[in-house]
Design a protein around this nucleic acid. Structure first.
Lengths: 143, 143
DNA sequence: TTTGATGCAAAGTATTTGCAGACTG
DNA sequence: CAGTCTGCAAATACTTTGCATCAAA
């Protein structure tokens, strides 16, 4: 979806919920939507500081919590301490993580949902969400 | 595989590597192999304290690091801060995590390896490992 | 004007690390 | 006996939280 359109939609959503639209919030949200590298909280903070030099890292974290609550951002943890986030596609989809350069590449696998559903049914498990991470070397690092 | 047999194999492996077989190490390793609930480091530590009351949590962590290095334990992180471990099946396989009671249920999905391999090939990504986590409610919690 | 949001600093917490002494091989 | 392992405590580093102040509506 168009980034600008999505930004407007999320802003509307927050307004309807009664959340205040502070300039920091909008800047943080925009930064997440514009960045397709699955940034960390700190990377977003550094970016924001250019336009709002007094913004605190705590506010970035609080905004992330808000966005998680409304389902507009996905938190990705790969066991390297710092979380990375995906606000562009905040629904389950496979990620390929390069163990050399740290790149996180989005992927799509239409068959996955069906496979998982079937797998869960056998054990009476009702699915809420899922996550598929693939670790390895990206195209340029495997050369 | 038989737990006892696997314990002996890992002990042999450690011996061959020149690692010392201290009673703490063997107790920690046994505790992991006997426990099929994907325990945390602290849960194993509590268990060990019954037989070796002076064992420190640091030693548990150091042993976990050793077992990870030799590929005999898998670390599972679900974003709830504390890692959980799977020493019984230390190779990639799906896990179903109950968001209500916290249970982690092992699963098998033979087709997954092939699907992932195909997915990665399209993007020139070379796979090292993968991970599939399914979140939802287990059979008893969904009633 | 009201009340939620910000920003600072301090707290929180799983895991790691340094080091002296203990124990395996 | 040599050198690794243990156990203690301190350090680490990301994230959360408390609170006084600020600003959106």
């Amino acid at each position: 979806m168009d980034t600008r359109k999505r930004l407007d939609q999320i802003i509307d959503l927050l307004r309807e919920r009664g959340n205040r639209l502070t300039p920091q919030r909008i800047a943080i949200l925009s930064a997440f939507l514009e960045n397709d590298t699955h940034p960390t909280a700190e990377q977003i903070h550094k970016k924001i500081l250019k336009s709002f030099p007094t913004t605190s890292l705590a506010t970035v974290y609080k905004t992330i919590t808000l966005l998680k609550d409304v389902g507009e951002i996905l938190e990705l943890e790969f066991g390297d301490d710092r979380s990375r986030f995906d606000a562009r596609k905040p629904y389950p989809h496979p990620h390929m993580i390069c163990t050399e350069c740290g790149a996180i590449i989005d992927s799509e696998l239409d068959a996955l949902d069906g496979i998982i559903k079937e797998l869960a049914q056998h054990s009476g498990f009702s699915i809420q969400s899922h996550r598929l991470d693939i670790f390895g070397l990206c195209a340029s690092c495997s050369k």
